[in-house]
Amino acid sequence: MSEPATLQQALSRFLTPACLDRQRQRVCHHLLACRTEAMGGTVLQCTGCDHTQPHYFGCRDRHCPQCQGRAMHQWAERQQANILPVRYYHVVFTLPHRLNGWVQLHPEVIYRRLFQSAWQTLRAFGRNPKRLGGEMGMSAVLHTWGQTLSQHVHLHCLVPGGALGDDGGWRGARSPYLFPVRALSRHFRGHLVSALRQAAKAGELHRVTRPGDVDDQLNALMATEWVVYSKDCLEHTETVVRYLARYTRRIAISNARILAVDDHQVTLRVKDYRDRERPKPLVLAGEEFVRRFLLHILPKGLMRVRHYGFLANRCRRRRLAQIRHALAVAEATADADTAASDSAPTYTCPHCQQPTLRVIGTLSPRRSLPGRRDNHRTQRYRT
């Protein structure tokens, strides 16, 4: 049986680094070097059958499908620890596809305005005394792709269903949709279009150079209906947290979805949402696969996960304690940080299938071009 195809194989066959900007070159360099001799690593030996093998380090790049699994689970555990005993809502703010071109020209500007507009929309509805009349909280994760790797920019938000009033009391939401979705959609549309007009006047959209394009695009956006999805997740809040966690450290594609790679094309497994989410193969030309993958590499330093309101980092602990007190819920005494083990890691031996592999040495990183597998040489390791 042949080994499963990987993102590394696809990139190494079809990537042309010379035509990439510095950030994409940097990310692709990391992904191609991940878990190879270029990263260095350790030497493992089985204490039962004496089998010896190298274990190469990961690149830890936030775009890598092989890395950050532990960080992803830790993020989910932290969010679970902060879950309140209230109704939660899964809210999705979608950016219209008309703005996809601007996203590639000015990703920092568009993504920042998207986060701000989503939060200001929820905050305005929550502050309204006719609705909740208090301060809300929101955790938002940026998601930029669809099943076919096409550009589909949207925010997944986990929102506690209620608001903290100025008097310290909790005012819970009862609607299965939190707020009327049409009203949410129109407020979100108006706020984001206004924010983009301000950005254009401030010269932040300077790469949009076609005369009249800014006004034409924004006027067209105001003339169309936008979509905000909102639904309570009372019975599966933990599932939504795990769902969001998958997008905090990885992008676009996992190795498990890459079925095959040859000299001309890449075959993916996708869900056909028009056919009851049945998995189907999708064949893309190699260059097209790489082009679509590169659409989702984020600018350096851009925060993909953001928390707002009483879930903001600067006040989360104090505000959650205040809300739990208002709900008459005692604080949990368990500290998740003490759960970590100080014992040395163990690995399963592929030869005898026992968890008896131990580290006996280290491998220095090999300085070579990423993705090249020629001129292999035996590596020396230090014990």
Rank of each mutant, 00 (worst) to 15 (best):
H152Y: 14
A118R: 01
A76R: 09
A260I: 08
A81C: 13
L284G: 02
G58N: 07
V227D: 00
A195H: 10
R112N: 15
L205N: 07
P345D: 13
V359F: 05
P299K: 11
S139M: 13
F310D: 01
W145P: 04
C34T: 07
L7G: 01
L114S: 09
T267Q: 12
Q74I: 02
P279N: 10
G169E: 05
R380K: 08
A118H: 02
R13K: 14
I323H: 11
P355A: 14
L44Y: 15
A220N: 14
E77F: 10
S343R: 15
R250T: 14
V181K: 07
R60F: 03
C49H: 05
A202S: 12
Q80M: 05
P17N: 02
A336R: 13
R274G: 15
F14A: 00
R278E: 15
D166N: 08
G203W: 09
Q379S: 06
R26I: 04
L158R: 04
L294K: 03
P96L: 02
V241H: 03
S175R: 10
H191L: 09
R127T: 04
L20A: 07
Q120F: 07
R113M: 01
D50Y: 00
R182I: 11
L363M: 12
P350S: 07
A195M: 10
L155H: 04
Q79Y: 08
Q322S: 11
C49L: 11
H307T: 00
R317W: 09
A140G: 01
C352E: 07
L363W: 01
